[in-house]
Design a protein around this nucleic acid. Structure first.
Lengths: 263, 263
DNA sequence: CAGTGGTCTAGACCACTGA
DNA sequence: CAGTGGTCTAGACCACTGA
């Protein structure tokens, strides 16, 4: 496994972890100045670029703040920005050991010229597809999905039958979106929502509204309404240096904590 | 060589944006191979390190995938990892033009040796402080907060009076946490929760459970229960190159979309 | 003014892995 | 095997800005 005896990690990575450890342990405190690149070159016996790479990475991740002439400082805790994992619903259900299914309830082709709500959601894009469907775990509906898709941008989706793959997964596999926004809140189920979800009107639900763009163009807008307790979002922040994939795996490995209903 | 008069941006940044633009516009599609570093050196007339910096940044952000010998490829859209902004509640309320206040309802000192729930939440850390309080906007309670704090790690908080500053803000200003986890769900208000929040039992609420660590030690665990419609979380993903701060500002500038209750 | 970080060069050796 | 990316060197010039 180890090729070269001792250097399992590249030098810039070891420098990065070294400094990070001092911040975590409290040896370096917020506001403290850390040695200049010149000093660190001498300490680690390496070129300035190598030190720079380590410090730049820590600055990008918000642990350090760099100011010209003044030096490099341990950053003060900032307004919190966490990494939110938005898993594919099918994968999430399967990971819980349940059987996932999507049931399409309704599909309509519309046009933003006539459909005011679609125009508000996607802009004046022309033809749109409006989908309504249910996400099921072990045959039980746990989320209602209402989605609009910009057909001008995604014409290939028009003939797709969503019996094998829900629209979100299809889009994820086919359309490289570049920007997305999620809004997360709670709401009381409406009469219509309650009916298809098999709950009572007024019951608590988690609501996610997600908009996706490709460049300046709207790809899709989706509103998902989850029965309370059936779904949980996890957001993390950590200096563990995790790639999104690793963070996602770590979150999936954890067990639930909020509203554990033993039913 | 480089036309030196016009470089508002560093060269590595221009190369990054150039390639990013091709991905966004669809000129480069998922799975496409992009030129090797050697070829890009020639194209941009620069050193390999400069090209490498641009490509590494895009790989870190998940837009490119790099494989030795094979080359660099436009990444396929991955499982979604978004940046979730977790704003200070006081700032969020003030930003909406309302007056924020925190009202402490209860404060107890306990010990994980006797307090089983505290031990489960924080680990066997010894003395803990248990706080219960309300977040108010224009004098109306919109969130209930129940918090445990590890006093061994944060002894300075013991005498603090939270009349001017809620516990979360105090902690953010004083304790450099290194890791945090949020769990977000919906729940129906219990009788006790409903009473202090001025709503009815069973009413929909947004629930956030946040755990914060400093290195291996738990700092605090907090459960916040928001009246439905009173609070919304926003998570974004975008190639706009936004720092967390910029993303946060952009999110704050947007108006609500989910469950706007005029009550 | 002088030290700092930001950027860039023109090389180099290496590990990896697909043709 | 040969091309690729990963890393690193030992320099350089520059803009910025606090002492």
């Amino acid at each position: 496994m180890t090729a070269k005896g001792f250097s399992a990690l590249p030098l810039h990575e070891r420098i990065r972890q070294d400094i990070e450890t001092r911040i975590i342990s409290g040896t370096l405190r917020p506001g403290d100045r850390i040695p200049s690149e010149l000093e660190l070159m001498a300490r680690y016996g390496c070129a300035r670029m190598t030190v720079n790479k380590a410090l730049s990475a820590l600055a990008t991740r918000g642990l350090l703040e760099r100011r010209k002439r003044a030096g490099t400082f341990v950053a003060r805790p900032r307004t919190v920005a966490m990494v939110l994992d938005v898993p594919d619903l099918g994968s999430a259900v399967t990971a819980r050991g349940q059987v996932y299914a999507f049931r399409l309830l309704d599909r309509q082709i519309s046009d933003t010229a006539r459909d005011r709500q679609a125009a508000a959601d996607l802009g004046d894009v022309g033809r749109v597809m409006r989908l309504t469907g249910l996400h099921l775990a072990d045959g039980v509906a746990f989320a209602l999905e209402e989605r609009l898709i910009n057909l001008a941008l995604v014409p290939a989706i028009e003939p797709v039958d969503f019996s094998t793959e829900p629209p979100g997964t299809w889009l994820l596999r086919h359309i490289p979106w570049t920007e997305a926004e999620n809004r997360i809140g709670a709401l009381a189920a409406s009469r219509a929502q309650a009916k298809v979800l098999g709950i009572s009107p007024g019951d608590a639900c988690l609501a996610i509204e997600r908009r996706t763009w490709r460049g300046a163009d709207s790809v899709t807008v989706v509103r998902q309404t989850f029965v309370a307790g059936s779904h949980e979002l996890v957001a993390r922040f950590g200096p563990a240096g995790g790639s999104p994939a690793r963070i996602s795996a770590a979150a999936a490995a954890m067990t639930s904590a909020i509203g554990t209903s033993s039913a």
